[in-house]
Nucleic acid binder design. Structure first.
Length: 588
RNA sequence: CGGGGUGUAGCUUAGCCUGGUAGAGCGCCUGGUUUGGGACCAGGAGGUCGCGAGUUCGAAUCUCGCCGCCCCGACCA
């Protein structure tokens, strides 16, 4: 039981100027956090209590899913990372530390880094300590602060430089067992988000820099989310836009009959799809081929799409380059023979085809048939272009960005689009890290095999903010029971009356006995201030004790989620509070 | 890192264009009146106007540089 007048809950009437979105404003106004610097926040007592609730629930659910808790250092020797498979890709996001502190070791390479995640630490540990099939499977997790030098911290705790994350790592003898671990974690995640009162949905996701074969993201739908989700409620399909596909191209689609021979025509000054679609050329965007030039691991390659489609860059990850980027105009001309705007992949028109690492075409170009494309000659295009007759394609793939309204790949129903906040991610990693670090085990036939890994993350601090983003109204936060910093707030309107405070303590004790965390507002403030603050900090159950009510022999009981106020006689108060708390505990 | 914006009291801000003693609201302190949805009256404390140069008799205001913060993009739990 805490007393507000003795506690530390600095609430704000106005939103600080640097907060933009509701959850960020409320984090600060409701006295949950304060900013120290960009992406760095102090958890005030109320915020810390929420974090502790989330952490404990997360711990329980991951343990139920087979996890074993440990804790790794925050500070890592840089060599661990330099020897790992993704130093080049991830070093920019790491805080690098000169351990000597006097600059004598020079600025060239850091001695230490602050851990952004822990694959590079746990895999060597497992390599040393897990050597037999008898030791498997294992799932090790921790809940700790992570450090990432985000290029742009944003929206309070949404993208912070220092944040709290649960990270788990599974180790299995084979693929089949690893998939079992993966699904156990997926279930644990679903249980976690359900218990904390966050409505998260699992969507298929791109694996990004983590590598690995497949993964799901857990998203909390919210307008301010920075992820696009394509989904269909009926079929249950849901995918991150980076990963989403659609059934746009019917299986077994035959090529259109060529309408005529290839024909070059002059298009002076025409360098955009839109210009070519307009008269006098009138080649609709969906009847054009768009040719993009990228550079992968130092070598140029081409991507061919329909004129009306956009490239989904993340999908190029499937091509296996470790790094890739759009080519510059200076790089394009010597290879293609023309500037961007007149590019194409018709056989024999590319100036220097041997320089290319490949020509990758999206499946959807097969819908084009008798299309138009650049002639690789500035100011000229070709018409009557047909895919199999005229184009050189190394490999077909899914490279286009799916648009809402396209048919769902599982049911054919139209896909819808919504935004979401990523609060969790699970990956089946395979043997990427175990190969690199030599984490092998010996089976019962004395054969050595790499350990098959999975890795799993939940952004705890981000989840706190996402719950607020999802649960608030015009007056403030509306905490779900399980995540709330306190469950019951007892507003004592006349704290100078000893009988009012005595009753508050009695009811508080009853609520605590039933399992609730109790805060008593005993401040010498006017009722209006107390009610406004009560709504702002969003404690689920509010009891109001006032001198007026005491004379009538009643107190009031109100849920934050409801408008109605129940008047309860003093004689029934303790029993009623106990019953309400027990019911809420049972539901949570 | 590219583009845009912004920096004045603990918080929200006016003043800046057109240079001339830095203002308000909230919060805080004292006294009084109030007391069921952010009270009222009176008094008070609190500011190197982000930092540094420059122009000027004089700079919050004009110029240049730096820094912080916010928003959009690439990245991520």
């Amino acid at each position: 039981m805490k007393f507000w007048s003795q506690y530390f809950i600095p609430t704000l009437k106005e939103s600080p100027a640097d907060a933009e979105i509701p959850s960020h404003k409320l984090l600060i106004r409701a006295g949950l956090v304060r900013k120290l610097g960009g992406g760095l926040y102090t958890y005030l007592p109320l915020g810390l209590r929420v974090m502790q609730k989330l952490t404990q629930i997360c711990r329980e659910e991951i343990e139920r899913g087979g996890g074993i808790e440990l804790q790794m250092p925050h500070l890592h020797p840089a060599e661990n990372w330099q020897q790992g498979p993704r130093w080049a890709a991830i070093r920019e996001v790491m805080f690098r530390v000169d351990g000597a502190g006097d600059g004598k070791r020079g600025p060239r390479e850091p001695e230490y880094v602050l851990g952004p995640t822990h694959e590079e630490v746990i895999t060597p540990l497992v390599r040393a300590e897990i050597t037999s099939y008898r030791d498997l499977p294992k799932n090790l997790f921790q809940i700790t602060t992570k450090f990432r030098n985000e290029i742009r911290p944003r929206f309070g705790l949404m993208r912070a430089r220092e944040f709290v994350m649960m990270d788990a790592y599974s180790f299995d003898a084979n693929d089949e067992a690893a998939i079992k671990s993966y699904h156990a974690m997926k279930t644990a995640y679903e249980n976690f988000f359900r218990r904390v009162g966050a409505h998260a949905i699992a969507v298929e996701a791109d694996t990004g820099v983590m590598g690995g074969s497949y993964s799901h993201e857990f998203m909390i739908p919210a307008e301010i989310g920075d992820n696009d989700i394509l989904y269909n409620e009926e079929s249950g399909y849901a995918a991150n836009r980076e990963k989403a596909t659609s059934a746009l191209v019917p299986a077994g689609l035959a090529d259109a009959a060529p309408a005529g021979a290839l024909e070059e025509f002059a298009t002076p000054g025409i360098v955009t799809i839109a210009a070519l679609a307009a008269p006098p050329y009138s080649a609709p965007a969906d009847k054009q081929f768009k040719t993009l030039v990228y550079v992968g691991d130092g070598k140029p390659f081409l991507v061919v799409l329909r004129g009306c489609d956009e490239l989904e860059e993340a999908k190029l990850g499937a091509l296996g380059f470790s790094v890739f980027r759009p080519a510059t105009p200076e790089e394009i001309e010597p290879v293609m023979g023309a500037k961007p705007g007149s590019l194409g992949t018709v056989k024999g028109t590319i100036k220097n085809p041997d320089a290319l690492a490949g020509i990758f075409a999206d499946h959807a170009i097969r819908l084009v048939g008798n299309g138009t494309t650049g002639a690789n000659k500035d100011g000229f295009h070709l018409r009557h272009v047909n895919v199999s007759r005229d184009l050189t394609v190394t490999r077909f793939g899914d490279f286009r960005r799916v648009q809402p309204g396209e048919p769902d790949p599982t049911s054919g129903q139209p896909l819808k689009l919504r935004r979401g906040i990523e609060v969790g991610h699970i990956f089946k990693l395979g043997t990427k890290y175990s190969d690199k670090y030599g984490a092998v085990y010996t089976d019962d036939q004395k054969q050595n095999h790499p350990v098959v890994m999975g890795c799993y993350g939940i952004g705890i601090s981000r989840t706190m903010q996402a719950i607020i983003e999802q649960g608030h109204d015009a007056d403030g936060v509306v905490w779900p029971w399980a995540s709330a910093p306190f469950h019951v707030l007892i507003c004592v309107l006349d704290p100078q009356l000893p009988e009012a405070m005595d009753l508050a303590r009695q009811l508080g004790a009853a609520a605590e006995k039933a399992g609730a965390d109790v805060l008593i507002d005993d401040r010498a403030e006017r009722p209006g201030v107390k009610f406004k603050d009560a709504d702002l900090i969003g404690i689920p159950l509010r009891l109001t004790i006032g001198g007026k009510g005491l004379k009538e022999g009643i107190i009031e009981l109100k849920w934050r989620t409801q408008k109605e106020v129940a008047k309860i006689s003093l004689a029934d108060a303790a029993a009623r509070v106990t019953a309400e708390v027990q019911a809420a505990q049972a539901k949570a």
